[in-house]
Every structure is written in structure tokens, then in C-alpha cells.
Design a protein around this nucleic acid. Structure first.
Lengths: 147, 147
DNA sequence: CCAAAATAGTTTACCCCCTAAACCAATACA
DNA sequence: TGTATTGGTTTAGGGGGTAAACTATTTTGG
């Protein structure tokens, strides 16, 4: 038991903490070079949930509001987002432009394709089941922690 | 099958790409604040494999040599590393100072403890086995990819 | 044997990410 | 209505990264 926890901790560290970015950096696609992963995440979040405030985006991304403010400025400059005024004049609702919608869709396809290739070539039918269970669990753990 | 791959891809994306950094950012420890994860990784690598060149570190971290050069400068400033001359006078061997050795050990304990708590509280005995298998596999996938 | 090519590192310019703190504007509320 | 709170922006400062230019030192090959 102890030994397994030990191995789990090491794997967690190697794979999650240091392994992921490597992969991210090796995705090659013009769009993926042009917009950062965090920027794409904003587009994807809005694509799924619809227009929302900067504050909510910050909460969902788990970062300081100033980080998001900065990010949103870039996305607006790139014309991927536009602002809708809400009743409360302090807050601004961010929504995708058509260009933003297209970018989100495309980037998703690229990333999906990339990961899919990674998995499908090297993971057999049995393993995929384990993979799913582990990751569902992980998602929970990370979520309850992050909140 | 298709549907499972689909879910796997999505989980991979959410957990690996966006979930990890959140966790990293929520580790709280003076040392962990003082030195970045990448800096700690350098210390850990050298702690494990012994003195090595900047080029090899860059290779192991999977980044451009200029990124490493910069990082090493910071670590030398903080007196965690020192330089040994090698026969080939172009290259420099980086080795841990005593302070570096202590920092590596401590940071590892902190991170270990953190991850362990994360896992041990929420993962039962059965799940840990799946976790291990999945992660061993993932490590392979990421490695073959990154090389 | 020596000049040209390759290799190891550093620097510089430029980008993105993040936090904290100061600062506006608008809304809440006592 | 005057003060507190809330949503966002800005600024300062510190990480991360790449690419390209530049040194210094080895290798190579004619």
C-alpha cells in the first residue's frame, strides 16, 4: 500500500506536472501558435456556456482577475471576443465573435485530433476503460481541491 | 468505442492540460513560492542523475537551451547550483551546492506530501491500482512523444 | 596543419502567464 | 446620502518560452 502510494505520487508528479507542457508545446498548428492555450480555453468556455463576465472566467480558469483582464484585452484586440453591456454597468459580458467561434471550433478539432492520435495508437481497448475511470476520478479530485 | 475515445480526449484535455496548473498553484510552502516548478525540476534532475551540462538539462526538460541558460543563471544566483569545469572547455557541468541539495530534498517532501494527501483522502485501494496502470502507460506515451 | 564547420552556452528582443496593489466606476446598503 | 463593496483595468515585477545573433572551443577534412 505504502509503496504504491509512493509510486503514484511520483507518477503524478512526472506525468501531470512535468509531462503535460511538453506535449502542449509539441502541438503544431498555425492557430495553436497564434493563440495561447489559456486564450483558447477562454474561447472554449464561452463557446460552451455562453457569454459571461470577466469575473466568472477568472473563477473558472482559477486565476487572478487581472490575469484574465489582460487576456481578454488580447482576445478583443484579435477580434475573437466582443463585449455586451449588461444591466449592471460595472460588469461586461464577453461573447464570441464569429471569428472567435470559428477559432474555438478549429482549435478544438486540432487538439482533439492530436490527443486522439496519441491515445489511439498506443492504448488498447482494455486500457481505455481504465484510463476513463482514472481520469473521471482525477477530475473530481482536482475540482474539489481547486474550488 | 468511438464514444469512449471522445470522452478520453475530453478528460485528457481537462485534467492534464487545464487541471494541473491549478493544483500546482495551490501548493503553499515558502520554498515552493521562492523557486518555480521548473527550477525545482532542475534540482531534482541533478539530485538524481548527478552533475550534468546545460544542454542535457535542456533536453530533459524539453525546452530551448536559452530557456535553460536563463534558468541556470537564476539558480546560480540563488546559490543552489555551482559550476564544475569539464575537459571540454565549451561545456560546464552543473552540480548542486549543499543549499541546493537541501532545497531539492525539502521541496520534494512538500510536493510529495501534498499529492499524497490529495490521493490518499479520496482514492480507495482499488482505484489506486487503476491509477498506477494508467499513469505508467501515460508516462510511456508522453515520453515516446516528447523524444 | 590550418581553415571551415559544428557544438555549448550566453544574450537580447519579444511573446505569454501570473500575482498583488492601486485605482475607477457603479451598485448596495445602513 | 455617504460609505462599503464589487467588477474591471492598470502597473510593477517575476516566471515561462522561442529564435537569432554572437563567443569560445572543438572537430573535421582537404
Amino acid at each position: 500500500m505504502d509503496k504504491r502510494i509512493q509510486e503514484a505520487v511520483e507518477l503524478f508528479q512526472q506525468v501531470l506536472i512535468y509531462g503535460t507542457e511538453r506535449v502542449l508545446r509539441s502541438v503544431e498548428d498555425p492557430l495553436w501558435k497564434e493563440y495561447s492555450p489559456e486564450q483558447m480555453q477562454v474561447l472554449n468556455i464561452i463557446a460552451k456556456e455562453g457569454a459571461m463576465t470577466a469575473g466568472r472566467i477568472a473563477m473558472l480558469q482559477g486565476v487572478h482577475k487581472s490575469a484574465v483582464s489582460n487576456r481578454l484585452k488580447k482576445l478583443k484586440d484579435k477580434e475573437l471576443l466582443h463585449v455586451l453591456q449588461s444591466d449592471d454597468k460595472r460588469e461586461k459580458l464577453l461573447d464570441l465573435t464569429e471569428k472567435g467561434r470559428v477559432a474555438a471550433k478549429h482549435s478544438n478539432e486540432v487538439l482533439h485530433g492530436y490527443i486522439e492520435k496519441l491515445l489511439i495508437n498506443q492504448v488498447d481497448d482494455q486500457e481505455i476503460e481504465q484510463f476513463l475511470m482514472t481520469f473521471r476520478k482525477l477530475k473530481e479530485i482536482l475540482k474539489t481541491n481547486g474550488e
